[in-house]
Design a protein around this nucleic acid. Structure first.
Lengths: 135, 135
DNA sequence: TTAAATGCAAAACCTTTGCTGCGCC
DNA sequence: GGCGCAGCAAAGGTTTTGCATTTAA
């Protein structure tokens, strides 16, 4: 557990959202100005293998990281890519229902809701561009 | 509807899996050797806006395209990134259950199962490396 | 002391975009 | 004749990696 790794973990736990690697890099840089982006990526990978953070690979382009390592679902804004937790409990037995119906060995599942976050919703209403986004 | 666009659409409908842009490009190139990757990307975007194909943005790194434009769920292999349909029916009313509990305007959801496809499963058993993949 | 991790830079990977010219209405 | 689309190539955004050096256990 290097100094860098520790600060990275702390920042993820401090940030109240679901930051991308770059957002974590920017936050950590305020504490450790000489840290490199490569180090951040390498440590995020290690921390997720250690089970100290959860790596999220949702539908957006960016990987995101979650201080809460318990399985849960997310909502993602289709306009600004903001990610929040979905207020819905995890369905433990979801994959049991069809183990017979597939040749895959199913090990996990993820459920992602898509929509507009409050900010993007309001902006779209102001500008009257809701249809452009939500077609 | 240009010649290129038509061939791209046909190839997606012919390929029995969930091809990435690059896989579509390689398939189309056999019919139209001078087509460019940019054209493929541009047409995939247009075809998905026209509702002729479905663009999938699942957890993996690549965008994939689906000839079946009906909403349905997928299984993805965590080892080789192969994608298949999940044998589970679409849950239409999923997002109704918590519209009150979030500030988002929820518009859609996607459910993705993760596991090992039959091929990767067998290879892992042969090599006795199952634990490395499925930890 | 020695394996592991860092910083830096370059590469890799996937996707998008600017430009020029061709072909369709 | 104008407009959209093609092909080509370059740029863009994100993530990974090679390497020399430093650091932590």
């Amino acid at each position: 557990m290097t100094r860098q790794r520790k600060v990275i973990l702390e920042e993820i736990q401090t940030l109240r959202y679901h930051p991308s690697a770059d957002e974590i890099y920017e936050a950590v840089r305020k504490k450790l100005p000489r840290i490199s982006l490569g180090t951040v990526y390498r440590n995020l990978e290690i921390l997720s293998e250690l089970g100290r953070v959860q790596k999220l690979e949702l539908g957006g382009r960016l990987k995101r990281f979650d201080w809460d390592v318990r399985k849960h679902y997310h909502i993602r804004c289709i306009n600004c890519d903001r990610v929040d937790n979905a207020p819905m409990s995890f369905m433990k037995n979801m994959e049991n229902s069809f183990t017979e119906a597939t040749d895959y060995k199913i090990m996990d599942h993820q459920l992602e809701f898509l929509g507009l976050c409050p900010e993007c919703m309001n902006k779209a209403i102001e500008r009257n561009t809701l249809d452009n986004i939500a077609r």
